[in-house]
Amino acid sequence: MQYLILFVTGLAAGLLSGMFGVGGGVIIVPALVFFFGMTQQTASATSLIALLLPVGLLGVYEYYRSGNISVEHVWFGLTVALGLFAGAFFGALIAIELSSDLLRRMFAVFLVLVAIRLWY
């Protein structure tokens, strides 16, 4: 079940990344903290694993070297990456069909919802 949640997290991050250009810090890290009880550092490191090839190789290495991630976290990150792969494709398809004004407003609402959730 936890791998399904991880995949859905990646899917959501991919969709939002494809639509708005966001994903790791806005979706993946909070999801890992809220749903899996990870520390902020471990969640950040696991998110970097998911984004490893495009942006995180050196960051993941440093977190691993300092003992903040384990092999299990590597598998978590790779599972999220599978969802990112599919989600980014579908998010881009959706975004292409929307007007720029609607997409901008949707992103603003999304950011407000995330801010409210983080505040409380």
Score class of each variant (00 low, 15 high):
residue 44 S to T: 15
residue 27 I to N: 01
residue 45 A to D: 06
residue 76 F to G: 03
residue 21 G to H: 02
residue 118 L to E: 06
residue 115 A to F: 08
residue 6 L to V: 09
residue 72 E to I: 14
residue 80 V to D: 03
residue 37 G to L: 02
residue 70 S to A: 05
residue 64 Y to T: 00
residue 56 G to E: 04
residue 117 R to E: 15
residue 23 G to M: 07
residue 43 A to W: 14
residue 75 W to I: 12
residue 49 I to A: 09
residue 111 L to V: 15
residue 110 F to I: 08
residue 116 I to Q: 02
residue 91 G to R: 03
residue 3 Y to T: 05
residue 35 F to I: 02
residue 73 H to Q: 12
residue 66 S to D: 14
residue 22 V to A: 06
residue 66 S to C: 09
residue 9 T to E: 04
residue 78 L to H: 10
residue 30 P to M: 06
residue 26 V to D: 07
residue 116 I to W: 01
residue 9 T to G: 05
residue 51 L to P: 00
residue 52 L to V: 06
residue 19 M to I: 11
residue 85 F to D: 06
residue 114 V to W: 00
residue 64 Y to E: 06
residue 31 A to N: 12
residue 30 P to W: 02
residue 71 V to Q: 09
residue 81 A to S: 13
residue 111 L to D: 08
residue 35 F to Y: 12
residue 31 A to M: 15
residue 68 N to T: 08
residue 58 L to Q: 11
residue 49 I to Q: 01
residue 42 T to K: 15
residue 66 S to I: 06
residue 105 R to Y: 12
residue 106 M to Y: 11
residue 78 L to E: 00
residue 110 F to E: 06
residue 107 F to S: 04
residue 103 L to D: 03
residue 97 E to L: 11
residue 23 G to R: 07
residue 120 Y to K: 05
residue 1 M to S: 14
residue 20 F to H: 10
residue 78 L to Y: 09
residue 110 F to D: 08
residue 68 N to H: 15
residue 5 I to R: 09
residue 23 G to P: 05
